[in-house]
């Protein structure tokens, strides 16, 4: 396995439960497909195989290219302290579907302190949502601060949950020291193209 050709880029998608990580994956799959990016997905479902099954049934991607890796009740361990099972799954996908350009790793959902190990991914994004609270960026969790890309999802809900979206964005940008923040509505796909642009430019080098 060490004599394989140049390996696919690995991109992590983390964030709290319910922030829209799986919806984001569903939005990016057809966009990557249209631009010819050869893709596979690993989900770290926490309790069931729900997310993997949802993607397999989505019709968006060959179900064989979606693999669930169990997290042993430790969603942070499997992406940070001990990412070997995810690395193993990525390697098997690469052997089976060579050549691959990109492997997406969707975390099972954790809290604001979760981060991806750079032994696992080349780049990672963190998904929060306005309904989770406009004060999340201010709390300066490691996920918000350290991710390569911060995504603020469910922008349409801001007026319904009393969140000042502009303030939330400004605070996110302030705590991240210039690293990018993107606002999305993964229900409609609004804002998702900008994520593809970032990944193409910073990870795939083929924008």
């Amino acid at each position: 396995m060490n004599n394989k050709p140049a390996s696919a880029a690995r991109v992590g998608i983390g964030g709290p439960v319910g922030s829209g990580k799986t919806a984001l994956v569903e939005q990016v799959i057809p966009r990557f497909a249209r631009r010819g990016t050869r893709l596979a997905v690993i989900t770290n479902d926490l309790v069931t195989k729900e997310d993997a099954e949802r993607l397999k049934r989505s019709g968006l991607i060959d179900p064989e290219r979606v693999v669930a890796v169990e997290a042993g009740a430790c969603p942070h361990t499997v992406i940070r302290e001990d990412p070997t099972l995810n690395l193993d799954a990525a390697e098997l996908l690469e052997l089976k579907f060579a050549p691959l350009d990109l492997v997406l790793l969707e975390s099972g959902g954790d809290n604001l302190a979760s981060t991806f190990s750079l032994e696992l991914v080349d780049y990672w994004m963190f998904v929060i949502d306005v309904a989770g609270g406009g004060d999340i960026p201010r709390k300066r969790g490691p996920g918000v601060l350290q991710s390569d890309l911060l995504i603020i999802n469910k922008s349409d809900l801001a007026p319904h949950v009393g969140v000042d979206l502009d303030l939330m964005i400004a605070e996110a940008e302030a705590v991240r020291g210039g690293k990018p923040v993107i606002v999305t509505n993964c229900h409609t796909g609004e804002g998702v193209d900008a994520i593809i642009d970032h990944v193409a430019r910073d990870v795939l080098f083929d924008s």
């Binding site: 169990e70 997290a71 042993g72 430790c74 361990t77 302290e81 001990d82 070997t84 099972l85 193993d88």
Partner: peptide, 12 residues
């Protein structure tokens, strides 16, 4: 047990 070899995900 913190040596990274995936053992935490199995209950056998």
């Amino acid at each position: 047990s913190s040596f990274p070899s995936g053992g935490f995900a199995f209950s056998w």
